[in-house]
């Protein structure tokens, strides 16, 4: 039977842990709401952009060209991995890093470079053989448009200069608070939207100025929007997962407190019984 004092100490420490996890759960919930708002804000813009792109390519399929569409034989690849900056979010980062490692498995170090978003990815890859081309840390789970733009500028420049032939993005797609999907997709070159996908748009469009010029303005925004969507999804998934993990931790702490309290009470009772027994037997002996 553990000493009364030790059990009491443990109960106190678990209670304070529960307080912390509870607070973290609440913070994550608030951040999740904000992150979800961001997703909903960007979505209409992103959809309309897709829409215009589709109309444009359906109407001007022959003349469609932009450096972002250029498919080159792939010699050098860039992996963009979006993780979180902080831990305590269950298996979120582990899963992402595992997925990235799987992707890297059959690649050669001299043909691949990594762009890390979030401290967790950086911590994992900084001591490994892969070259880190750029790192974007300390987002603290908030989407920052200026930094997203910097990142996109860097990536597109690298692609346009021919320093990389393909940019692959690994991030988490936000499905619901409790669900996310690790997604791997080719960020650049951009897949040309198939003109058959837009059967409704058999209009003869007027372009002002030429389709090429419109494309030149459209594609950077397209790239930026795709990245912002990916970031927004990742951050929302992170907060969602953390909320769930911390909720589970709070629940476990509660259960632990219950068992410990039971243990404490049992020990206390045992001690009282023992004391009583001692007194009674002492009295009996005196009667003798």
């Amino acid at each position: 039977m553990p000493a009364l004092r030790d059990v009491k100490k443990r109960i106190r420490s678990v209670v304070s842990t529960r307080q912390i996890t509870k607070a973290m759960e609440m913070v994550a919930a608030a951040k999740l709401r904000k992150a979800q708002m961001k997703i909903f804000q960007v979505r209409p813009y992103s959809e309309k952009l897709d829409h215009i792109l589709q109309h444009l390519s359906a109407a001007a399929s022959g003349e469609l060209s932009h450096p972002f569409f250029e498919k080159r034989p792939v010699h050098k690849q860039t992996l963009v991995l979006i993780t979180s900056d902080r831990g305590l979010c269950g298996s979120f980062n582990t899963n992402l890093i595992r997925r990235a490692s799987e992707w890297l498995q059959d690649k050669k170090p001299e043909e691949v470079e990594i762009v890390v978003v979030g401290k967790k990815a950086f911590d994992f890859f900084k001591r490994r053989k892969w070259k880190i081309a750029a790192k974007y840390l300390d987002w603290s789970g908030n989407l920052n448009y200026t930094r997203a733009r910097e990142m996109v500028d860097f990536l597109t420049q690298r692609f346009l200069n021919g320093e990389t032939d393909q940019i692959v993005l690994i991030y988490t797609q936000f499905l619901s608070t409790v669900r996310y999907r690790i997604t791997e997709k080719i960020y650049l070159p951009v897949e040309k939207p198939a003109s058959s996908e837009a059967p409704t748009s058999h209009f003869e469009y007027i372009f002002e100025p030429s389709p090429e010029q419109i494309f030149a303005g459209l594609m950077p925004r397209y790239a930026l929007t795709k990245m912002i969507t990916a970031l927004a999804d990742s951050f929302a998934s992170e907060h969602g997962t953390r909320m769930i993990a911390m909720g589970a931790a709070t629940k476990n702490a509660g259960e632990m407190i219950d068992t410990l309290t039971l243990q404490y009470n049992k020990a206390r009772q045992a001690a009282i019984t023992k004391e009583l027994l001692e007194i009674v037997s002492g009295a009996e002996a005196l009667k003798g």
């Binding site: 007027i206 002002e208 010029q213 419109i214």
Partner: peptide, 19 residues
């Protein structure tokens, strides 16, 4: 304010994409 100057759009405008 279109890419080639200001333009007005009324109902039943022809399909158009402009910067």
């Amino acid at each position: 304010p279109g890419g080639e100057g200001y333009l007005g759009v009324l109902t039943d405008h022809a399909p158009l994409i402009t910067s």
